[in-house]
């Protein structure tokens, strides 16, 4: 008796947990916010790498100077660290935004496909009875 009551209480809770998990799994990432987060992080990485390079190997700008091929105005110098941080933010923003976009699109497509499959599976039984 007690077992049955516990089972009856657990089933709706399990269903609710499942529904919450499903809702979370398909909740999209905020593109702009992820862009800002990745941008700030990449800006810090470029600036810190430049400062570290200046401290440890001030006479030899190689290989960090190669970044100037992709970040016009960048150099292994204090000013370069600032410019690099700006470029790092821009690149990171694009990467973060695009990552969120790609993930959201794939999940949205998966959701539509799953929905369609479930509907088809439901209607298959109905069609068999006609």
């Amino acid at each position: 008796m007690l077992d049955r009551m516990t089972q009856a209480q657990q089933t709706p809770r399990a269903e609710q947990e499942l529904e919450e998990e499903l809702a979370l799994a398909f909740t999209p990432l905020h593109k702009r916010c992820l862009g800002v987060a990745v941008g700030v992080t990449l800006a810090l990485v470029v600036a810190l790498a430049t400062v570290l390079h200046l401290l440890r190997s001030p006479d030899e700008p190689f290989p960090l100077v190669l970044l100037s091929q992709y970040m016009p105005g960048y150099s292994v110098s204090p000013l370069g660290a600032l410019i690099g941080a700006g470029w790092g933010f821009f690149s990171g923003f694009v990467i973060g935004w695009f990552f969120a976009f790609a993930r959201n699109v794939v999940l949205a497509i998966a959701k539509v496909v799953l929905h369609a499959k479930a509907e088809l599976a439901e209607s298959r039984g109905f069609l068999d009875h006609i």
Binding site: H30, R32, C33, L34, V36, A37, V38, V40, T41, L44, V45, G96
Partner: peptide
Amino acid sequence: AGELIAAIYNRA
């Protein structure tokens, strides 16, 4: 870096 990204993202 991952912790930092998550912290900034969640706040944003």
